[in-house]
Nucleic acid binder design. Sequence first.
DNA 1: AACGTTCATCGACACCTATCTATATCCAAT
DNA 2: ATTGGATATAGATAGGTGTCGATGAACGTT
Lengths: 86, 86
Amino acid sequence: MQEVDAEVFKALSDANRLKILSMLSSGEICACRILEALDITQPTLSHHMKILSGCGLVTVRKEGQWSYYSLDRARLDQLKEFLGSL
Amino acid sequence: MQEVDAEVFKALSDANRLKILSMLSSGEICACRILEALDITQPTLSHHMKILSGCGLVTVRKEGQWSYYSLDRARLDQLKEFLGSL
DNA sequence: AACGTTCATCGACACCTATCTATATCCAAT
DNA sequence: ATTGGATATAGATAGGTGTCGATGAACGTT
């Protein structure tokens, strides 16, 4: 229960990942666009996206050689609900 | 900006600290009560409380030899606002 | 088939974290 | 003053995390 929420909060506990989520809040974005904006290397971005999608905060859509990421609003609502319960 | 939020989310990214916050949601509690409920040692609890108060999520009220902790709702609202902006 | 681009994985490294035991500090009561 | 209980601090340790460079895999174009 709290372990699950803790995992999602851990995903949110990095400034770069928060920036990524902030970008995704405007809608679906290609990974390459995120990479341009973030001053990290491509493997590091890949690592962050794995964490974000691993806890269900974002979803991936593969199209050819590109990966398009988008927010999972339902997962976000779960978090808001948890905070609201405090 | 995102660095500040990241720090608070990091504070939330531990199951024991989430349990503590959950207990505090019912109102002010003495540290010794939290200790009874958590299956960790007293120094570890002290460590967690330092993190939670360090990022402004909880406040302390010292009374004699006891420490009473309570939630800072304003800080929580800040977080909800951030999640809402996504 | 060969090349270039996008993304993922591997291995390494410095740093951080949760936890413990041991000890110190502070306060109240004897 | 001394004892006892509550909390904080110090030091140690095992495991986790963000980052990188190097490399691999998949895809489209020439």
